[in-house]
Amino acid sequence: MNDRVTDDPARGHSSATLLEASRLGIALTPDLRPLWAGARLCGPAFTVQGAGGDNLALHHAVLQAPPRSVLVADLGGARFGHWGEVLTVAALHRGIAGLLIDGGVRDAAEIEALGFPVFSRNNAILGTRKDFRGVFGHPVTVGGITVDTGDLVVGDADGVVALPSGGAERILDAADARVAHETELMARLREGRSTLELYDFEAGGR
């Protein structure tokens, strides 16, 4: 039985809002993109250290990761099809919330049809070997950012951020406040106020 996540640990905030609210360097490289339009990644990370061109670690990760977690896999940016439809079906059955992989994947159309959010470096049809069992639950480097198990991963059309587990609540509270402030700004813009006035910019711009 598929146990998909129904709540939103990011309180519905976008990756951009969380980045701005955090005032930290938590944004992953923009090379990591959603596999299909509209995919949204959200959940605590379960980290996987694999080897480029080898996907045995991902098979083991699907069995080890807790439900509602996001697999965050370091495959060194290798351009192989490390993940596809078979692993997606297995992950959905176990309630995994999505995949963030610094490497390639395949079966894009099938994964989109299944509604499973995947963020990857590229699509690739090259097959993989199955030799390295992987290392799990330790910090990995994905998209230029160190991610540890338990960090909150959020990805959408604008990019991916990884909120450190120890500071996630502070960032989420700051994001709540930012959204409330921006809602007020939008109301004033619709009344005819200018951005220069509302943001107190100099008239000449900067």
Results as ranks from 00 to 15, higher is better:
residue 172 L to C: 05
residue 30 P to Q: 01
residue 197 E to D: 14
residue 162 A to Q: 05
residue 24 L to N: 01
residue 6 T to K: 14
residue 135 V to R: 15
residue 191 E to G: 06
residue 158 D to P: 00
residue 91 A to T: 07
residue 35 L to N: 05
residue 198 L to D: 10
residue 179 V to N: 03
residue 147 V to H: 06
residue 67 P to G: 14
residue 55 N to G: 02
residue 51 A to C: 01
residue 151 D to Q: 13
residue 105 V to L: 01
residue 57 A to K: 08
residue 146 T to N: 07
residue 85 E to K: 13
residue 1 M to V: 14
residue 180 A to N: 08
residue 109 A to L: 12
residue 153 V to R: 07
residue 148 D to T: 15
residue 142 V to T: 08
residue 163 L to P: 01
residue 81 G to K: 06
residue 136 F to Q: 11
residue 49 Q to D: 01
residue 26 I to G: 11
residue 39 A to C: 07
residue 85 E to T: 08
residue 186 M to A: 15
residue 92 L to H: 04
residue 194 S to L: 01
residue 177 A to V: 01
residue 193 R to T: 02
residue 74 D to V: 05
residue 160 V to L: 13
residue 94 R to V: 00
residue 101 I to G: 02
residue 130 K to N: 07
residue 181 H to T: 07
residue 173 D to Q: 14
residue 10 A to H: 08
residue 16 A to C: 01
residue 192 G to K: 07
residue 53 G to D: 03
residue 19 L to R: 12
residue 100 L to D: 10
residue 142 V to C: 05
residue 206 R to C: 00
residue 129 R to Q: 10
residue 6 T to I: 03
residue 206 R to Y: 08
residue 161 V to S: 02
residue 100 L to V: 04
residue 94 R to S: 11
residue 180 A to H: 13
residue 205 G to Y: 07
residue 39 A to N: 10
residue 195 T to M: 08
residue 79 R to L: 13
residue 142 V to S: 03
residue 51 A to M: 09
residue 113 A to C: 01
residue 202 E to M: 08
residue 66 P to K: 14
residue 170 R to G: 07
residue 50 G to Q: 12
residue 191 E to Q: 15
residue 48 V to Y: 09
residue 57 A to R: 09
residue 10 A to M: 05
residue 144 G to F: 14
residue 167 G to C: 03
residue 30 P to I: 01
residue 23 R to T: 05
residue 117 P to E: 03
residue 123 N to H: 12
residue 31 D to T: 15
residue 11 R to C: 06
residue 162 A to C: 08
residue 19 L to T: 04
residue 32 L to D: 03
residue 57 A to D: 03
residue 202 E to A: 13
residue 204 G to A: 14
residue 185 L to A: 00
residue 78 A to I: 02
residue 51 A to L: 13
residue 117 P to Q: 03
residue 23 R to F: 02
residue 99 L to R: 01
residue 193 R to M: 04
residue 94 R to L: 11
residue 153 V to N: 10
residue 8 D to C: 02
residue 125 I to T: 13
residue 153 V to D: 04
residue 164 P to K: 04
residue 171 I to A: 13
residue 38 G to S: 10
residue 2 N to I: 00
residue 87 L to Y: 05
residue 11 R to I: 02
residue 183 T to C: 03
residue 129 R to F: 02
residue 123 N to T: 15
residue 79 R to H: 09
residue 172 L to R: 02
residue 16 A to E: 09
residue 69 S to F: 11
residue 56 L to Q: 15
residue 168 A to S: 15
residue 140 V to N: 09
residue 11 R to A: 09
residue 116 F to T: 03
residue 202 E to N: 10
residue 162 A to M: 01
residue 204 G to M: 11
residue 119 F to N: 06
residue 128 T to H: 03
residue 52 G to A: 04
residue 165 S to C: 10
residue 74 D to M: 11
residue 129 R to G: 09
residue 112 E to Y: 04
residue 69 S to H: 15
residue 62 V to K: 00
residue 136 F to G: 13
residue 192 G to F: 04
residue 32 L to M: 06
residue 97 A to E: 03
residue 70 V to P: 13
residue 52 G to E: 04
residue 63 L to F: 12
